[in-house]
Simulated assay, not measured.
Amino acid sequence: MLDIARELSRWCARGRDFAVATVVAADGSVPRPPGAALAVDTDGTATGSVSGGCVEAAVYELCHQALSTGETLLERFGSDESDPFAAGLACGGTIDVLVTPVRAGTPGTDRAAATFTAALTAAARGEPVAIVRSLDGPGSLRGQALLVRTDGSHRGSLGGDDRLDRAAAREAHALLTAGRTATVRIGADGTRCEPAITLLIETTARPARMVVFGAIDFAAALVRVGTFLGYHLTVCDARSVFATRERFPQADEVVVDWPHRYLDSQRLDARAVLCVLTHDAKFDVPLLERALRLPVAYVGAMGSRRTHHERLRRLREAGLTEPELARLRSPIGLDLGARTPEETALSIASEIVAERHGGTGLPLTGTRNPIHRDPPPPRSRRPDDAGTSRGRGRARAFG
Rank of each mutant, 00 (worst) to 15 (best):
L328V: 11
F18N: 03
S157Y: 05
D189E: 08
D80G: 07
E289D: 11
L120Q: 04
A36K: 08
V24M: 04
L67N: 11
S49G: 09
H279T: 12
L315M: 05
E310K: 13
G391F: 00
H279R: 15
R133S: 15
L288M: 08
V97W: 02
L292Q: 00
R166H: 12
A26S: 15
H308E: 06
A19S: 14
G105V: 06
R239H: 02
T365H: 10
I95E: 07
T150R: 14
G399V: 10
R166P: 03
L199M: 04
G108I: 06
R327Q: 13
D161P: 06
A251W: 00
C91W: 01
V254S: 11
E75I: 09
G399T: 13
P249C: 07
T45R: 14
M302R: 02
C91R: 07
H232Q: 15
P375H: 08
L277C: 02
G226N: 10
R163G: 15
R316S: 00
R379H: 12
Q144E: 14
P101L: 02
T106H: 11
A87S: 15
A26G: 15
C54V: 07
G358R: 10
V254P: 02
A58R: 05
A297K: 11
L287C: 03
V24W: 02
T22M: 05
D41M: 05
R392S: 13
Q144S: 12
S51W: 03
V211H: 01
A221D: 04
V255E: 01
Y262P: 04
G88R: 02
L2C: 03
G143M: 06
H64Q: 15
R76K: 13
V148K: 08
R180E: 14
S350R: 09
G44S: 07
R394P: 10
L74N: 12
R356N: 10
A281F: 00
G358E: 09
S330F: 05
P34Q: 08
T340R: 13
R155E: 05
F116D: 04
G35T: 07
R271G: 09
S380A: 15
I131K: 10
D237I: 05
L146Y: 00
F248L: 10
G52L: 06
A386N: 12
R311Q: 07
P323Y: 04
L320G: 09
L294F: 03
P323G: 09
F283S: 14
D269A: 09
G361Y: 03
Y298M: 10
I348S: 04
A243R: 10
D151N: 08
E71I: 04
L67S: 10
P259E: 08
S140K: 13
R339N: 12
R311C: 01
M302T: 08
A25V: 09
C275P: 05
R382P: 00
G337R: 06
R373Q: 14
D280M: 06
P84I: 13
A338R: 07
T109R: 14
F85N: 13
P34S: 11
A345L: 06
S134T: 13
G391E: 01
T321A: 03
E342M: 10
L288W: 02
R14W: 02
T198L: 00
R133P: 04
H232K: 15
S9L: 02
R209E: 10
S82E: 13
T344E: 01
V353E: 11
I216G: 09
A167I: 00
